[in-house]
């Protein structure tokens, strides 16, 4: 049901023609797609079955995309999600980024990126991105997303977010003593301390993904 079997997506957008077009595009790629025009109906679907990924609009009457994602993760914590929006720069986008998304894409939707991100989406493949006040957090997140994983960003001072056990925790741009303290506080988490290049992260993440595939 997860990464290589039948892929099943739920597309949620109050703009019916757009929702249907996105569904048709995804169906052309061989996936099975359900469409809902509002978040409440979408939640009922999410409680009834498991999807490979959720594709949702942000601004909708009633519940918006951010509220939908929060509720969806209650129902299905392993669910990857991708957001499309006409409002890049919305405050709510920062909120969904913190909840973990595969991408936030603008409208008109760049179809190739949408297909590529969903194709690689892996349920439950979460990577914690633990960054202080860092300029690299965005690049680490993109790196993680390129591999179909969902990055969850937070700072060393925050409590880790709920959800599946992460494949990895990437500690970027953190002082040595702070990194060591964080590691002691979170035993059992596979930790990568990212100093300079992203290569170490690539190697570790690929190895974890291989184990993950075998296990799942």
């Amino acid at each position: 049901m997860t990464s290589r079997g039948l892929r099943r997506y739920l597309v949620v957008d109050d703009n019916q023609p757009l929702a249907e077009n996105l569904a048709e595009i995804l169906e052309t790629s061989g996936a099975e797609v359900d469409v809902e025009l509002d978040a409440v109906a979408a939640l009922r679907r999410l409680q009834a079955r498991r999807y490979t990924a959720l594709v949702t609009d942000m601004r909708m009457p009633g519940l918006g995309g951010a509220e939908l994602l929060a509720a969806a993760r209650q129902a299905d914590p392993a669910l990857p999600a991708l957001v499309v929006t006409a409002f890049i720069g919305d405050a709510d986008l920062a909120r969904v980024e913190r909840m973990g998304v595969l991408a936030t894409l603008p409208k008109p939707v760049p179809v190739e990126i949408l297909l590529q991100r969903l194709e690689h989406a892996r349920r439950g493949a979460v990577v914690w991105v633990v960054c202080g006040a860092s300029g690299r957090v965005n690049r680490v997140m993109e790196f993680v997303r390129d591999r179909g994983c969902t990055p969850l960003p937070f700072t060393p001072a925050d409590a880790p977010p709920p959800g599946p056990t992460p494949l990895l925790a990437v500690l970027a741009d953190t002082a040595e003593d702070e990194a060591a303290a964080w590691a002691r506080a979170h035993p059992g988490v596979h930790l990568i301390w990212l100093l300079a290049s992203l290569e170490a992260l690539a190697t570790a993440l690929d190895a974890e993904l291989e184990k993950f595939e075998e296990g799942g």
Partner: peptide
């Protein structure tokens, strides 16, 4: 405008 553009663009893609 982005919503109608998005619909038109995805229809062209299909």
């Amino acid at each position: 405008l982005r919503n109608p553009l998005g619909v038109a663009e995805s229809s062209v893609f299909l």
